[in-house]
Structure formats: C-alpha cells, structure tokens
C-alpha cells in the first residue's frame, strides 16, 4: 500500500513539480535538517498538549458542575454549543492581535478546540450511571462526592477516552493553525510550513506535514495504550 502511494507520488511529482516535491527531496530535507524538525515538532507538540491540558481541565471541571447542578447545565450548555459551531480557526487571527505572537493564543485556540468534545462526552458519562446502581448507593446515603468519586467518574472514563481519541489529533490541528495565523511566530511546524511555502521550499513543507502526521499517529497510539490499561474492564477494549 505504502509502495503504491509512493509510486503515485513520484509520478505526480514528475508531472506537477510545483505541487509535489520528489520524495527524495523530502527525505534529504528531513535527514539534513533533522534537528530543525525535531525542535519545531517539540514546540508544536508542547503547544498542543499544553492547550489540550487546559481544555481538559476546564471541560472536566465544567462537566462535573453541569452534571451536579442543573442550573449550571442550563447556563453553560447553550454557550458551549455556540462555541462549538463557531469556526474557532477563524478566531485565531483575532487572538493573535489580542495576545501577540507568544504561546498564549496557541494554547487558547487548542484549548477551545479540545474543550467541547471533552465536555459533552464527560457530562454524558457522568450522567449515564444505571438507575438501579444509583438506587443501591442512595440507600447507603452516599454523599455527592462519594458518588462522583466511586461511581460517576469511573463510569465516565470510557466516554472520556472516546473524546480523547478525537481531541488529540485536533489539538495538533489547533496548534498548527494558530502558528500559521501568527506569521511572526518563532517556532513550530505550522510556522515552518508558512515560512517555507512563502519561499517556495516544497520539500520543507511536505517534510513538516509528514512529521505532523507521524506525531498524530504517535499521540493516538499513546491514547490507545493508556486506554487499554485504564479501561481493561470495558467492552470497547476486549
């Protein structure tokens, strides 16, 4: 499969030299400037994971609050839905204007993109404890905190992991888009791509894309490994 794709690519590169660089060019760019790609990859990865972490904490806390307090649910959910349908990518330039070229706008964009799937899935998981299980623990007069800790949160974990599978790749997209919107940024693969494409360095562009793809796969792999350990009891991993 890979060989066929590679062959097609090479054929395309010969037909359309302005669209696709030869693989050898991509390869030599990668091996020649390995340190450069690693450095930028780490910058992007750092932004993506930090942004995701922020989004995660915010979404998780809010999910707990919405599932415990109907008032918060009614206040927050409409806002969250509006946030979700807003193309956050379009907000990136505005955030750059507001926060400058530092990491801040990147973290915010990434965090916002990751926020909604985590919020919705976690809130669903917290509330989908079977009625009879709740009844058993209510007759022991379990407190809300006990119920959360021993029953609701573990029950929400499969839902949370389903969200993480969506959100890890999204976090990279968020970081790259934010980097590209801040044209003066100092690092990151998104910056590398916009700089290289403005100078017509196609091999660098595609090498960066390749690195991004590999990063995405590795992140997904990491989620899967953790999921298998944590959710060993759940049908989804057996």
């Amino acid at each position: 499969m890979l060989a066929i794709l590679g062959g097609l690519w090479q054929w395309g590169a010969r037909q359309l030299p302005y669209l696709l660089p030869p693989l050898s060019g991509v390869g030599s760019s990668l091996s020649g400037n390995f340190g450069y790609y690693v450095h930028n990859a780490l910058v992007t990865l750092g932004e993506a994971t930090a942004g995701l972490g922020m989004g995660f904490v915010g979404a998780f806390v809010l999910a707990v609050l919405t599932s415990e307090l109907p008032l918060v649910r009614r206040a927050v959910m409409p806002v969250a839905v509006v946030l979700n349908v807003t193309p956050l990518v379009a907000v990136a330039p505005a955030l750059v204007v507001a926060f400058g070229f530092g990491p801040m706008p990147k973290l915010i964009i990434t965090g916002l993109i990751c926020f909604f799937p985590i919020l919705i899935n976690t809130a669903t998981g917290l509330r989908s404890v079977p009625q009879q299980v709740l009844q058993v623990y209510r007759t022991m007069d379990a407190s809300r905190v006990e119920l959360l800790w021993h029953v609701r949160v573990p029950n929400a974990l499969p839902y949370l992991f389903a969200a993480l599978r969506i959100v890890f790749p999204l976090s990279i997209i968020g970081a790259v888009v934010a980097e590209m919107s801040a044209s003066g940024s100092t690092g990151g693969l998104g910056t590398a791509i916009s700089v290289a494409s403005s100078m017509n360095q196609l091999p660098v562009v595609y090498a960066s894309i390749l690195v991004l793809a590999v990063m995405g796969v590795l992140l997904l792999l990491a989620v899967t490994v953790v999921e298998r350990r944590v959710l060993h009891w759940h049908d989804s991993v057996n």
């Binding site: 079977p130 009844q135 058993v136 379990a142 006990e146 029953v151 974990l157």
Partner: peptide, 30 residues
C-alpha cells in the same frame, strides 16, 4: 444510618471493580 440494604432486579454491580471490591465498597461509603 445505613439500616437499609437494597438488592434491585439487576445486580447493579460496578463493572470496573472486582467482585470483592464491589462488595467492600459500601464500607467506604457514608
């Protein structure tokens, strides 16, 4: 005061806990 024990129609065990932990959890609650 935990005077009441309930056995519902379905076992209502927590799927992520072993049998032993399922039955000992009530001691940690309330």
């Amino acid at each position: 005061a935990k005077l009441i024990g309930l056995v519902p129609q379905s076992p209502a065990l927590l799927p992520w806990l072993s049998v032993l932990r399922n039955v000992t959890l009530p001691q940690k609650i309330n």
